[in-house]
Amino acid sequence: MTGERRTPEGLRYGWTTGACATAATTAAYTALLTGEFPDPVGITLPKGQTPAFALAVESLDAESAMAGVVKDAGDDPDVTHGALIRATVRHGEPGTGVAFRAGPGVGTVTKAGLPLAVGEPAINPVPRQLIREHVAAVAASHNGTGDVIVEISVDNGEELARKTWNPRLGILGGLSILGTTGVVVPYSCSAWIDSIRRGIDVARAAGYRHVAGCTGSTSEKTVTALYGLPEDALLDMGDFAGAVLKYLRRHPVPRLTIAGGFGKLSKLADGHLDLHSGRSQVDLRKLADTALAAGGDADLAERIAEGNTALEALRLAEAADVPLGDAVAERARQAAVEVLRGAEIAVDVVVIDRAGTIVGRAH
């Protein structure tokens, strides 16, 4: 693959599954019309970049052409990095344009709320448009009609999809073909944030009035035990509290529970919306001040301020019978309400320790 670009920090940008599927489709349709596969195959992305992709596999017969591209996510920790994305192109009926099919390893939509109708292949709108544009360009160059059936598949995609949100979103059978720009920005975690948004869309379409943003599987189990929420009302928030709150501000539900570990929610209490350890830190001095306000004495506050971890602060407060967990929960709730900016959403917060024991709540 050519056209390598890097961030100011020296990290390599990558290419989305949608860009790879477009490149594979372009090569396959060209071969179907001409008998030859362009390799590497160049495409033009929505913002004008013109990367070229080497073909990893290709095959051609009288009825169809198949080309495959290995996804390079650059330096982003993307679950689909290294996946082989194939496009098989066949002639369609005159006047039908581009019809999309889900091949092995590409999911099918089974729940309302996504930007695709139930029953459609999980090939998102922007990649579909990009593929249509490139099919039209190939047709114009080689006297084709542009009436084609495009089947996208991903080797091992069904297994890879189990590591994504797709099963919870009702996308069954494999991965989604994603991307709005065609470019993967390292550590932007755009796929995760997009999944949070689609999770909210699916919950709203299902009519749920209560959703929960959880930092991990332990907090999900705690919330499920507390409220009996269905799986598709549980948002795998991870570190992206801001993504949940900002999207709900524009697309509200009546009630939101935020659940997570004491350390992460201590950061939300301080106003951090990205709770990743590399992008925000627990402020032990603020925890000490919070303990004072919750009834602790100066000695406790000093020991917390001079401690090493949030968990140590919590244990010190518990030993002194100071409800630091509840105080952090309330401050986190206030921070969330501030981000929601008046949206009519009732917010409660559940704080747990590593064992899943509830150590703080706020309503």
Rank of each mutant, 00 (worst) to 15 (best):
residue 197 R to F: 08
residue 125 P to S: 14
residue 123 I to G: 02
residue 167 P to M: 11
residue 194 D to W: 02
residue 133 E to P: 01
residue 186 P to W: 03
residue 181 T to A: 14
residue 179 G to I: 06
residue 185 V to Q: 06
residue 136 A to Y: 02
residue 155 D to E: 15
residue 135 V to I: 10
residue 135 V to W: 02
residue 134 H to N: 07
residue 180 T to G: 09
residue 123 I to C: 08
residue 174 G to W: 01
residue 190 S to L: 08
residue 148 V to C: 06
residue 147 D to Q: 09
residue 143 N to R: 15
residue 194 D to K: 03
residue 125 P to W: 12
residue 147 D to Y: 06
residue 197 R to I: 10
residue 173 G to T: 12
residue 174 G to V: 04
residue 131 I to C: 04
residue 118 V to T: 12
residue 188 S to M: 10
residue 199 G to I: 05
residue 124 N to L: 13
residue 130 L to W: 02
residue 160 L to Y: 01
residue 142 H to R: 11
residue 163 K to M: 15
residue 140 A to L: 13
residue 197 R to G: 09
residue 184 V to W: 00
residue 193 I to D: 03
residue 180 T to A: 15
residue 171 I to Y: 00
residue 136 A to M: 07
residue 154 V to I: 14
residue 165 W to T: 05
residue 186 P to A: 11
residue 179 G to Q: 06
residue 147 D to A: 15
residue 168 R to S: 13
residue 188 S to Q: 11
residue 167 P to Q: 08
residue 176 S to D: 08
residue 135 V to N: 01
residue 165 W to K: 04
residue 149 I to E: 13
residue 171 I to V: 13
residue 186 P to S: 11
residue 170 G to K: 00
residue 116 L to F: 07
residue 132 R to D: 13
residue 132 R to K: 08
residue 129 Q to W: 07
residue 192 W to D: 13
residue 154 V to G: 04
residue 196 I to S: 04
residue 165 W to Y: 13
residue 154 V to Q: 03
residue 132 R to Y: 04
residue 136 A to K: 03
residue 146 G to D: 05
residue 127 P to V: 09
residue 168 R to N: 12
residue 115 P to W: 12
residue 125 P to H: 10
residue 190 S to V: 06
residue 138 V to Y: 00
residue 134 H to I: 04
residue 143 N to E: 14
residue 168 R to C: 14
residue 127 P to I: 09
residue 147 D to I: 11
residue 138 V to N: 00
residue 163 K to T: 15
residue 127 P to A: 15
residue 160 L to W: 02
residue 150 V to I: 09
residue 123 I to D: 03
residue 126 V to P: 04
residue 144 G to W: 01
residue 143 N to K: 12
residue 149 I to Y: 05
residue 116 L to Y: 03
residue 182 G to Y: 03
residue 133 E to S: 09
